[in-house]
Design a protein around this nucleic acid. Sequence first.
RNA 1: GUCCCUAUCGUCUAGCCUGGUCCAGGACACCGCCCUUUCACGGCGGCGACGGGGGUUCGAAUCCCCCUGGGGAUGCCA
Length: 465
Amino acid sequence: MSDLRVRFAPSPTGTLHIGGARTALFNYLLARKEQGTYVLRIEDTDVARSTQESVDAILDAMHWLGLSCDEGPFYQSDRFDLYKQKVQQLLDEGKAYRCYCTQEELDAKREAAMKAGGKPKYDGTCRNRTDSPDQPYVVRFRLPSDDGVTTFVDRIKGKISIRHEELDDLIIQRTDGTPTYNFVVVVDDAEMGMTLVIRGDDHINNTPRQILLYEALGYPVPDFAHVPMILGADKKRLSKRHGATSVMDYQKMGYLPEAMVNYLVRLGWSCGDEEIFSMAELIDKFTLENVGKSAGVFNPDKLLWLNTHYIKNGDPERLAGLLEEFLEMKGIDYAAGPDLVAVVKSLQERAATLVQMADGAAFYFSADLEFDEKTRSKFLTEENREIFQLISDNLSACQDFNEAALENAFAKILEETGLKFGKVAQPLRAALTGGSASPGIYEVLAVLGKERALKRIQRAMEQLS
RNA sequence: GUCCCUAUCGUCUAGCCUGGUCCAGGACACCGCCCUUUCACGGCGGCGACGGGGGUUCGAAUCCCCCUGGGGAUGCCA
């Protein structure tokens, strides 16, 4: 074990989405690589917006992606006593104070400051109050110095400085007594011993004030690594209006977790010209140094391509297991066969998603296929009766119903009749699959097996016109 | 408005730190050809970028400055 401790800290106000998943992935990879510790913390201090449903959705997604944590999940809602105590500590030390300004007053001041072209920050009205009126109040953290500069060296972005004049006394405890994000994140990251905080770069602006808080609380300041945001095709922050952004939406659409992981990691990180990475390779190769600094656009096409790759190269047994759910969703009863693994093998190069694979597999499990008009008029014709009979006879005579034997049988037919392969194969394909697009004809035959194949040819012959 | 971050093909990126080997490499998408029993897979090829302007230098995608574009923050959300 190294002493690296990182965490992923989502707030449970929705599902885990693409951006969060990537942040979690980076944390996970670095922890595994450095043999550090990866902690999961649920940031649910906003009690009104946090739901158990969201927590479950996030946990599900993490599990699906294979990002298991070493510690946690911890819930901030369980730690309010600790935060209270820390607020009190700052109050006692004079590093924080009660502010009695109302929301309305604050809003008005902000607006006025904006209008005057100034910075919309708290004016310090209650900073030096000595009375303590019996009114609702918030607790504000007093800026240690009004004219200094806080600088930190981000592990991804490099040196970042903010002048204190840009900051103001931030609220650390609300009127209702609950603590705010910028405060609890510091207390927790410190108390949980985080040595490195990897998070989205929308938090960069918060970092200097958090550093001030670490110092005020007497905590060591961790390292920071701010990863760039993910944008939609219009370069706007990725959101629902860009389509599916929830990780589990992709599971439902038939994507494989390894495709999602591979896609996510390459959005903002690279390793020379390499594109395909297994989790094990990522753990070996991932470094913060190769994470880019600029925001990236989410590209569904590339994700699809990766999914195609992983389906094509995936273990058929595993894929068969995953496919069941999608077959069931389409109301396909696959229990009576043909063998699901054989079905998968015949479809691996033809499906980009498990949904597509289920679509392509449907014909295998349908005893009485529906023929559309086009297929009927083109292939199920009286002129083809002889061909069907010939195929049927030859197939009946086939001892081994494997691809090699079938190929031989067909060679014989073609030789005897002088017909071109397509002349024979397409009508047969129609009889077997109900359409004109399918896996290789020998493959279909072999997967179906002799009995089913013959039955389908028979049935087609009954419908010639 | 102000502050912070950022800037190579349409998109993800390599190269930038340690200037010349870059008339800029890979991948996705797109287009064409080949393979072919259908649909696919695959193979080959094509299209396509250093945002603009100043410097520094014999030489800049690479270093410096300005501008512009994009993102973020500016909450008693996280």
